[in-house]
Design a binder for these strands. Sequence first.
DNA 1: AATTATACTTTATACTACAAAGTAATTGTT
DNA 2: AACAATTACTTTGTAGTATAAAGTATAATT
Lengths: 123, 123
Amino acid sequence: MSNNPPSGRFAYDGLDRTIHERARLSILTSLMCHPKGLSFVDMKKLCDLTDGNLSRHVKVLVDAGFVSVAKGYEENRPHTHCKITKVGQKQFLDYVSVLQQVVKDAANEKKRVRSAPLKSSIM
Amino acid sequence: MSNNPPSGRFAYDGLDRTIHERARLSILTSLMCHPKGLSFVDMKKLCDLTDGNLSRHVKVLVDAGFVSVAKGYEENRPHTHCKITKVGQKQFLDYVSVLQQVVKDAANEKKRVRSAPLKSSIM
DNA sequence: AATTATACTTTATACTACAAAGTAATTGTT
DNA sequence: AACAATTACTTTGTAGTATAAAGTATAATT
């Protein structure tokens, strides 16, 4: 009753749900790669999302404070420009560092061929 | 009407839903790191999951053919032993290679400081 | 004037993650 | 022997959410 591990070795609780969803991971990564931001239409193409899905997911990201939007007109058409916020950048980088750990863990398996301590020490 | 891109640059459609879910990503990674398999109880600890969640997610993975289970008794207690299957290994590695691309894309942002072609060429 | 196209937003549904409750066998405890 | 507690799970119910489909609004085209 004295040693409860700080967290399961493979729990990955840094994988924030808001970011981990595939569509939003796409959106955020595309925005990270375009510091000046992207239009709704460009994001739609880059992330392969339908209008409805993009709209919904952007709203979630805006509500979380990870993305900011500027709505206006360009060439007589409504034009929505999205940018990742400072908070969004930080959260995203934190998230990615956890991803990196997952990739690292997955890579370890390749080296390890057989045998692993099973009883007592599972780590 | 002749050039539709093969897929959005940031679509990441290799992120299989079955694997991408956090709990299942945990489970699969832990199983990859333990080629001999893991017991229900050990996985619960390693992945920080409740009994109900682990049970449910393992079922999803079994139904997908990614994990196999052997139920038996050990020391007068029911004992479930889980292992990742060949198919599961392959799918997992495919998934991780996409993750690696995400991490790579995310890293690119750090080098890039300002300016990015915006009109015509968004990639 | 009536389609068609663009750029979105809203809704409705089908899915699913998760907590809580349930099952079943075993091991103390009195 | 009876009862409570523990272990090792499974099943159920619900709350949340991703996504397709439908809707809105403006502009260009025929």
